[in-house]
């Protein structure tokens, strides 16, 4: 690696901080850039929710697991907050904390047996957990509202600020999104994050060097589920209506697709995937029944031509345009690392 490469790589963290700040500044200014157009703000809020769900799901992926129960935990947060509001009159501020706690508690209990399974068994078991959560909401009609769901879950107020205003809710959803992305990003950078990836790469080997794999797996699952539950709480108070079908396996599957298209190896992947696919899906809506075909073709194109996901585009451009690093062997080794998880 030459000096130019080393200098640029050394400067990378500050670039990341700059990008974060620029991104947040853009998000803060966005409603005014679009003249507070209500429909576009709605799409932005949906994008934020999708980022939250995909990013929290990615935390479980960092262990090497794909949880199809993830939307179920989003549902737990949504129902907890909705019930706090409808039964006790407590606003979202209580509901979001209660939702996270209930979600975390259930996730911890469920993950103790769930995280002992692997591969296809984990897939099946997590699917079953998601389905059971959905069915519980549906069957206990008196408490959870049954298939009809719960209605009139109003947005909160904070002093003079009424979050029924869409611009206000945009900022609320944005705060949650930044919080979740930051938590997952920072956690991924810590020693704990490295341990998650070591379990991802070689669980048996990790155990042999003294890592209590189950403990870390339960921790990651619990944190990710709590974050999904917080997303659910904000989702419920935004849409003002929830039903069990809103949190079924398809919601988890879409979050997984966002991760795959965005990229699997960094926290930027789910963010990019959720932004890209949510906007594309919305743009395609006027194409009526061609929508699903075109959407499918885009997915196939992405997987075929960008195997590392959208997150690999800057690296590919850097490699090509800045010709970094110059020696082809290192280039190949870096290019090969895209999409293979963090090494």
């Amino acid at each position: 690696m030459n000096e130019k490469s080393k200098t640029l790589l050394r400067n990378r963290p500050s670039l990341v901080v700059l990008l974060w700040l620029a991104g947040i500044a853009l998000l803060l200014a966005f409603p005014f850039l679009i003249n507070q157009e209500r429909y576009i703000l709605h799409v932005a809020i949906v994008v934020f929710f999708n980022i939250c769900l995909a990013t929290s799901m990615w935390l479980i992926w960092s262990l090497g697991f794909v949880s199809f129960a993830h939307a179920g935990f989003m549902g737990i947060g949504a129902y907890t907050s909705a019930l706090f509001f409808l039964r006790l009159g407590l606003p979202l501020w209580f509901g979001v904390i209660a939702g996270a706690l209930v979600g975390a508690l259930i996730a911890m209990v469920v993950s103790l047996p769930l995280m002992r399974t692997r591969a296809v068994y984990f897939f099946m078991a997590s699917w079953a957990v998601g389905e059971v959560i959905k069915r519980i909401f549906a069957y206990y009609r008196g408490f959870f509202g049954g298939w009809e769901g719960l209605f009139r879950i109003m947005p909160p107020k904070l002093g003079p600020l009424d979050f029924a205003n869409r611009t206000a809710y945009y900022y609320l959803a944005m705060v949650l999104m930044v919080l979740i992305v930051l938590v997952v990003y920072r956690l991924n950078k810590t020693r704990t994050g490295w341990i998650f990836w070591s379990i991802h790469e070689a669980e048996v080997l990790s155990s042999h060097v003294g890592i209590h794999a189950l403990k870390y797996k339960v921790a990651a699952f619990t944190i990710a589920s709590a974050l999904a539950a917080m997303t659910g709480a904000l989702y419920a108070h935004y849409h003002t209506y929830i039903n069990p079908k809103s949190f079924d396996i398809w919601t988890s599957e879409f979050a997984l697709v966002h991760i795959i298209v965005g990229g699997l190896s960094t926290a930027a992947g789910p963010v990019l995937g959720a932004v890209f696919l949510t906007i594309i899906d919305e743009l395609l809506r006027p194409t009526e029944f061609y929508r699903i075909v075109i959407f499918g073709v885009i997915l196939i194109l992405t997987v075929l031509f960008l195997p590392g996901g959208l997150e690999s585009i800057p690296k590919r451009l850097r490699l090509r345009l800045w010709k970094l690093p110059e020696d082809k062997d290192t280039q190949k080794s870096i290019a090969g690392a895209f999409g293979k998880g963090r090494k």
Binding site: P286, Y290, I294, V297, L301, F305, L306, I313, R316, R320
Partner: peptide
Amino acid sequence: MRRALLFVAGLLVLLIAFGACSRG
């Protein structure tokens, strides 16, 4: 890089198709 270019080209084709399909 070729793959990325192909991807962008594919997206452009799709957007043209999208324009053609969407109801005017």
